[in-house]
Design a protein around this nucleic acid. Structure first.
Lengths: 248, 248
DNA sequence: TCAAAAGTGTTTCGGATACACCCATGA
DNA sequence: TCATGGGTGTATCCGAAACACTTTTGA
């Protein structure tokens, strides 16, 4: 799939005729979550000589907003077929306070649709684009000041993710293919920001009936070797669709 | 507040220069729920010589999307300060299949943001507008075929409303100021589309701590006179903000 | 041999569910 | 007087939460 920014050869051209390729007034912002070293990360972008922001994009004339988010994600992480969820639309007229580029296409007012994504940290090689100088992971509870209302968008995404734990499993795409129960627990604890009982957690996860315990154990570490698990993709997807009833 | 359609004196003018007043490519659609005679109703609009649809509107240049939904609601029901919630954005490029007005402003592709509202049926006097010939309440499980993807939007709104019962009270704005416990129960049963135990329901509602039982009883009907209740607005609002943990 | 992590099972408790009896009212 | 709807209380059950002991491993 083509990179959206590549439709233009310069920022100036982009500012002058974004209209030709994209719907005006409408953007998509992605809160890309990853999990690494027992903490939840977000992928952020830094504008050249500017502030940090969420990776976002615009909506092409014949593209759905979902596709637009998928494309944005692909550009930034190289990943396809990952979990992506629309969570809220942000439409205050002054949400983009301090916006520059007055008079250009990009300088118009934009309503943005927020998506959050869950990706496998270890598979991602962050890359900046035409407009940005850096792209890297930040710890969710230590993000810098972001442009416009992006801090608020991120908070709302995190809140949506937390709420989703009550009726959907999480972990596929966020963890490596094989993982241990303690790893899965750390993930939940990190998202929820609270400690959980080891034994009750295990019972609850197993009762979801989306895990397969492998014969292997994770060796190498000190202490007793934990079992490895993987998700039963079919059952996992079913649970994602149907919804569960858990409580954290 | 001015009626949005009143910014133009004719449909033609509207088609030619909607741009002047509104953001292009962006609309708002409202699923307005009411409760009457033990069934859940939606307020629908009929285009002149055309199909039924959800009341919708466009977003003015200096207006938030929320304000736009509030305005739309006001136009249709005359009501202000009622409960309104954004639930999803619909952005398929071909969601408006069969769209007319090719080449005009209104004929462009629109991404629409869905809101649902809960209103007191008895306070509403539906009125059509410039573009529509009829405006009336329909039973939610008996709506006609709607334009574009509006049936889908309505379903999604209903689903969102059902889900919200799990963590938020409902009834304020949807019921008259004073109401009986059986009325409240009917409301829940209607939204959830299932029967609930009378005694357990009452216990659950009282445990929410948002109701005030009045001295009066509802007289006039046959049989034993039920108590009247009203909501404790302060506690109700708090519960709306904080969220509850119920289960239906 | 010991500290630290991981595997597993039992008890307890509270909230949800199921259920029954009495009361008021108009027909 | 009786059918219908409304008010209230209690027993039960299931799932969540609390909790303890054993096993493995490298240091």
């Amino acid at each position: 799939m083509a990179r959206s920014k590549a439709d233009f050869t310069s920022l100036q051209e982009f500012q002058e005729s974004g209209d030709r390729v994209y719907l005006s007034h409408l953007s998509v912002d992605c809160v890309i979550f990853g999990f690494h070293e027992n903490s939840l990360k977000v992928l952020l972008l830094k504008w050249k000589n500017g502030p940090w922001c969420l990776p976002g994009g615009f909506v092409k004339h014949k593209e759905s907003i979902d596709q637009s988010a998928i494309r944005t994600l692909k550009e930034r992480t190289g990943l396809a077929e990952i979990f992506l969820k629309q969570f809220y639309a942000f439409g205050d007229p002054d949400r983009e306070k301090g916006k520059r580029h007055e008079g250009t296409w990009i300088g118009k007012r934009f309503v943005t649709i927020g998506y959050y994504a869950l990706v496998d940290y270890s598979q991602v090689f962050p890359e900046p684009d035409l407009l940005s100088s850096e792209c890297k992971w930040w710890d969710v509870d230590n993000v810098p000041e972001l442009i416009y209302d992006h801090n608020q968008i991120m908070s709302k995404a995190l809140e949506a993710l937390r709420l989703s734990l009550n009726d959907h499993p999480v972990g596929y795409n966020l963890l490596p293919e094989k993982f241990t129960m303690p790893q899965l627990q750390k993930l939940y604890e990190t998202i929820l920001n609270e400690a959980l009982d080891r034994r009750n957690f295990q019972k609850q996860m197993i009762s979801l009936d989306v895990l397969i315990r492998l014969k292997e154990r994770k060796t190498g570490g000190a202490h007793k070797a934990p079992f490895l698990y993987r998700f039963d993709k079919r059952k996992y997807d079913k649970a994602m669709k149907q919804g569960l009833r858990l409580s954290f």
